[in-house]
Structure formats: C-alpha cells, structure tokens
Amino acid sequence: MLQMKVRGLMYDPFNNAFIIILRDEQEKEVLPIWIGKPEAGAISFALEGVFTPRPMTHDLMKNILESSHAKVISIVITDLKDNTYFAKIHVYYQDSEYTIDSRPSDAIALALRADAPIFATDSVIQKHSTEELDRWLDNLRPEDFGKYDA
C-alpha cells in the first residue's frame, strides 16, 4: 500500500469531467481519477481552504463525526474495475474500527477535511497502468497507424 497526496485537479474537456491527480510520496506513481463536477468542487474547496458560510455536505459529514468523537483514520483507494475506482473510509469510533464503502471522490473530500492520510493499494496501482494502456489502445484510430509507412 502506498500513501498518496493530492497533487492537482484538472479539467478534462474531452469527457467534460475533472481529473484528480494522486501521487505517492516518492513521486514515482501517478494515479489519475476521473470525477464529476460537484465532487471536484467539494475537493477544490478543501484544497484551497475556501471557507463557506454554511457547511457543505462533506463539512456536515466531518462535523457529525467530530461531534460523535469519531475519527477518520485513513481512506484507501482499494480497487479499479472497468475504469471505476472504489474506496474505503476507515473510521475509529468507541474503541472499534469501521470500514465504509465510498466513491474515491467522497473519500478524498472527507480525508482532506479531516486531515486523514490517503492510501492506494498496490493492486490499484498495477491495474491502473494496464487499464491506462487498454484505454490508450482503445482510443487509437486507424489514422494513428501507418504514419511511417514508406
């Protein structure tokens, strides 16, 4: 398992979506995760430390956890299937640990607010490289070939 940091948030005009870029501490691995616009908003507010007069949904989540003396231990990007990432949120509450399934975007939005570390499993990092290759091959068009034909 590798600890990851949020390195950026970019707009992908081709898919009208946003990409959150996670990198490991040694900056060897890059994990790009495509997310929707509302989720990108929730993450960018946390990244930029934007204060909203009313609590946004992930702030509410954090406030409920704090009021209950529950703590987010970590979030883990656990799996990648058909270009969809899966995550788990680990919460410590009343001497027990609870694991809750989540979309990576919600998990990351919460982790940034709760100052919890973000991890990715080794299998996600390996699969990501192969799925990336598949996607790249899928996107190839006939005119991409044969450029070097004599």
Binding site: E39, I64, Y93
Partner: peptide, 29 residues
C-alpha cells in the same frame, strides 16, 4: 440529491448522501 431520494433512483455508486447515511448506520448513530 433530493430528487433522487424522492424518485427512489438508485445510482450504481453510493452518492454523497448515501455515504452519509451508510456512515451513520455503521457507527450506530
């Protein structure tokens, strides 16, 4: 988020309020 709940639309992935609900249930709140 309100419309989805009213119309009983199930999305493939848990949306943010579904996550919130699931979190409350896990913690027994």
């Amino acid at each position: 988020a309100i419309k989805f709940a009213l119309e009983g639309i199930l999305s493939g992935r848990p949306m943010t309020h579904d996550l919130l609900k699931s979190m409350l249930e896990h913690l027994g709140l």
